[in-house]
Amino acid sequence: AVSDRLIGRKGVVMEAISPQNSGLVKVDGETWRATSGTVLDVGEEVSVKAIEGVKLVVEKLE
């Protein structure tokens, strides 16, 4: 699937994400809805860990 190529890629949070609410991330110039187990603020760099349906699962870049 086209989304599989995104796993491991870096992105930037465009709309804040929390465990309760999905947000938006931009990866390779495309905007995706994303979820995370932690709070991520706009502008934070993330990496794509998995894909669930049409949402990316991301975590903060260390």
Rank of each mutant, 00 (worst) to 15 (best):
K60C: 04
T31D: 14
I51E: 02
V57G: 03
V46F: 03
P19W: 07
E15G: 08
M14Y: 12
A1M: 11
R5K: 09
R33H: 09
V46L: 02
L40V: 08
V2P: 15
E52G: 04
K60A: 11
T38P: 02
S3W: 06
K10T: 09
S22W: 09
E44R: 05
L61F: 10
V25E: 00
E30K: 09
L56M: 06
K26Y: 08
L24I: 15
L40H: 12
E30H: 12
S3D: 13
V2L: 13
W32N: 02
G43D: 09
G37R: 08
L24A: 12
V39F: 15
D4H: 08
L56Q: 00
S3H: 10
V39E: 07
E15H: 07
L56V: 09
D28P: 01
I51Y: 09
V46R: 00
I17V: 08
G53A: 05
T38S: 14
R9F: 08
L56R: 00
K10D: 11
G37K: 11
V58R: 00
D4F: 04
V12C: 05
E15M: 12
V48Q: 00
E52H: 14
V2G: 06
D4L: 08
L56K: 00
V46P: 01
V12I: 10
A50G: 13
I51T: 07
E45S: 11
Q20F: 14
E62R: 12
K49E: 05
P19H: 07
W32I: 04
E59S: 09
V12S: 12
S47Q: 10
I17W: 02
D4S: 06
V12R: 08
V39P: 10
T35S: 11
A1K: 03
R9T: 09
E62L: 14
T31Y: 09
E44K: 05
Q20V: 12
V12D: 06
A34Y: 03
G43A: 06
E44C: 05
K55G: 12
I51S: 04
S47N: 13
V48F: 01
S18N: 14
K49A: 06
V42P: 09
E30W: 04
V2H: 11
V48G: 01
G43L: 12
G37I: 09
I7D: 02
R33A: 10
G53E: 05
A34E: 00
A34I: 01
G37D: 12
I17Y: 01
Q20T: 12
S22H: 13
L24N: 04
E30V: 14
I17E: 02
I51N: 04
A1C: 06
P19M: 06
V58P: 00
V46I: 14
A16D: 06
T35Y: 06
K49R: 14
S36F: 02
A50C: 05
S22Q: 09
G23H: 01
V13P: 00
K26P: 01
V12H: 08
E45F: 09
A1D: 13
G29V: 06
K49C: 05
V58Q: 00
G23E: 01
L24C: 06
V39W: 09
L61T: 12
G11E: 01
M14L: 11
K55R: 14
V54N: 11
G11S: 02
A1W: 07
D28H: 07
V42F: 07
A1N: 11
K49S: 12
E62T: 12
V2M: 11
S3R: 06
D28F: 07
R5N: 13
S18Q: 07
G11V: 03
K49I: 12
G29A: 11
V42Y: 06
V46W: 00
A34Q: 01
I7T: 04
V13M: 03
P19A: 11
A16G: 14
K10C: 05
G11H: 00
G29L: 08
D28I: 13
E52K: 07
R33D: 10
R9C: 05
V57Y: 12
T38N: 10
T35G: 07
K49H: 06
K26C: 06
Q20W: 15
M14Q: 08
L6T: 03
L40A: 04
W32C: 04
M14P: 00
N21S: 14
N21A: 13
V13T: 05
V54I: 12
K10W: 11
D28M: 09
V27H: 01
E44T: 15
L61E: 10
G23F: 03
E30F: 10
R9N: 09
I7H: 03
I17T: 05
K55F: 15
G43F: 08
V57S: 05
K10P: 13
A34W: 01
V13R: 00
L24P: 01
S3Q: 08
P19T: 08
S36I: 01
K26N: 12
E52Q: 15
E30A: 12
V25Y: 00
A16Q: 15
K49D: 03
D28Q: 11
E45P: 11
E62N: 15
L6D: 02
G23T: 02
I17F: 03
E15Y: 09
A50I: 03
A34L: 01
T31M: 14
A34C: 04
L6C: 03
K49V: 15
I17A: 02
V25G: 00
G43Q: 07
W32K: 03
E52W: 08
W32R: 04
I51P: 01
M14E: 08
T38Q: 10
K60S: 07
A50Y: 07
I51Q: 05
K55S: 14
S36V: 01
E52R: 11
L24K: 12
V58D: 00
V27D: 00
G53H: 05
R33V: 14
V2A: 12
A34H: 01
A34V: 02
S36Y: 02
E15R: 13
V39N: 11
V2C: 06
E15L: 13
E62Y: 15
V25F: 01
E44M: 11
P19L: 07
T38V: 09
K60G: 07
V48W: 00
V39I: 09
L56E: 01
E44H: 08
G43E: 07
G29T: 06
V39A: 15
W32S: 02
G11L: 01
D41K: 15
I17L: 05
D4Y: 03
T35A: 10
V13Q: 00
A34T: 02
L24S: 11
S18L: 06
D41A: 13
R9D: 04
G29C: 07
A1S: 14
V54W: 15
V12M: 06
A50Q: 11
A16Y: 10
K60R: 12
V25N: 01
Q20H: 11
S36K: 01
A34F: 03
G37Y: 12
V2T: 12
A34N: 01
D41V: 11
